[in-house]
Design a protein around this nucleic acid. Sequence first.
DNA 1: TCTGGGGTCCTAGGACCC
DNA 2: TCTGGGGTCCTAGGACCC
Length: 354
Amino acid sequence: MVSAASYEARKFGVHSAMPMVQARKRCPHAVILLPNFRAYREFSTAMFRILEKYSPLVEVTSVDEGYVDLSGTLKLHRAPAWTVADRILREIRSELGINVSAAAAPTRAWAKMATGLAKPNGLLYLEPSRATLLVGCLPVSAIPGVGKKTEDILNRAGIQRVADLATTPRESIRRLLGLWGDRLMRIATGSSSRQIRADAPDGQKSYSKDRTLEADTTDYVFLRTLVRQLAEKLAARLRSDGKGATTVTLKVRYHDFKDVSRSISLKEPTNLNSEIIDTLDRLFFLTIKKRSPVRQIGVKFSGVGRPALQTDLFDPNRQLRRERDRIVDAIRERFGFESVLVSGCGASNSHSRR
DNA sequence: TCTGGGGTCCTAGGACCC
DNA sequence: TCTGGGGTCCTAGGACCC
């Protein structure tokens, strides 16, 4: 699949989430690169460091996107917001050598929407007196959170543009979309009040990992082995972050794209392989019932928190298992995941689609 | 054109408690 | 024996985002 496409490639109709086969067809001379998440992480950190020089209120929303509250800039920098925004972008470009786009606007949703218009590599300032007019012209799909489904619902009700949404009676929108409709109305009218939070105090909320198989299968021995491998890799991430999870979920996508998930919540957060795998074994039999070929299978940990280490004090067995996990992690860190295969995890990965 | 992987947030129903 | 309403947690699924 295409993770991202350059503007040059986009001219040929290539876009993210497109299957590579198709992308190659549309743009045979494209330069194809494998992702390099380590590099993205480094640039991301450097970029946000620059943002933080200009405002204490920086919210990171993804590796390449965030919000900066510049409402205090007049006092702090003796310059209006758009001047400061311009300075920030210039600094990012010159320090990091990458393109970047932004918009300055009265609300965060409008800033995000306007940034779409500023791309590539531009800055758009939404002057408050004209902002309503400009935003109003955008299609409802430009609103963050409005995807295909919501767009269809709104369009069928004759609501095409943000201005239409802003002027439709609240009751009608509520009938169409419930509480979500209320939020959309507030975004459309510019009265949304979500503040920019200088960042997430509790951090990541869930960890998940899934695999789409090379070919659909009903080979349950293989599937169970794969689930264990995914779980062990994911649990290692929990351990390395010093976290645990209370809820374990197993998700299966069948050949017909029907998704089924089952989850179990434990009494307290854990990151022990043994406890997690026992739980997944139970879930496996709850989830996989029919003789239906499986396309994708995945594991998710949620209810992330501090692991319940105190429990170890009363359970020497648990201490041993924790120690074993620690050793396995250390070996795998040095010699790769396959260097240690815990009972029944030896099956080949030949079913894997990627 | 067959449809990845890693996330977030929301909803709705049921269990359980007060 | 039948009845309230509110709060919280759990579970399953869905929409959406990068």
